[in-house]
Design a protein around this nucleic acid. Structure first.
Length: 108
DNA sequence: GTTGTGACGGGTC
DNA sequence: CGACCCGCCACAA
């Protein structure tokens, strides 16, 4: 735990909240903000983009409110996005359209 | 201490 | 629907 502690309290809170997301479901950045009740979706994105706890922290289960995947490992577009979609699909996340998850898969 | 950027969100056109 | 603008917080240089 104290191996690489260059992270701030905010980052730690984000990883902790994302880690609570159950498989087959997805949460929006705003949902995470509601769990930690700190910062904004923009800050959560910044934190997950540096997610050093992957894949321990299911950052791929965090998607945009629009249902779009958002990004993956700092890449807002590219083959990694397709990888993210495959993982979610494999976990049982319903997709409304390719590249977009069903709103029913959202928590909250 | 200041500036710029970013895996967002909501509102408006 | 899509495209555009503004506002939000956190982090790195």
């Amino acid at each position: 735990m104290d191996s690489n502690r260059k992270l701030s309290n905010f980052e730690n809170a984000v990883y902790d909240a994302v880690r609570q997301i159950p498989p087959g479901k997805v949460a929006s950045y705003g949902w995470v903000v509601g769990q930690i009740a700190r910062g904004t979706a923009r800050a959560v994105g910044t934190a997950l983009a540096r997610n050093p706890f992957a894949p321990e922290v299911p950052c791929h289960r965090v998607v945009r409110k629009d249902g779009s995947l958002g990004g993956f490992f700092g890449e807002t577009a590219g083959p990694q996005l397709g990888r993210k979609a495959e993982m979610l699909k494999c976990e049982g996340v319903p997709f409304k359209t390719p590249g977009k998850v069903d709103p029913n898969a959202f928590i909250g």
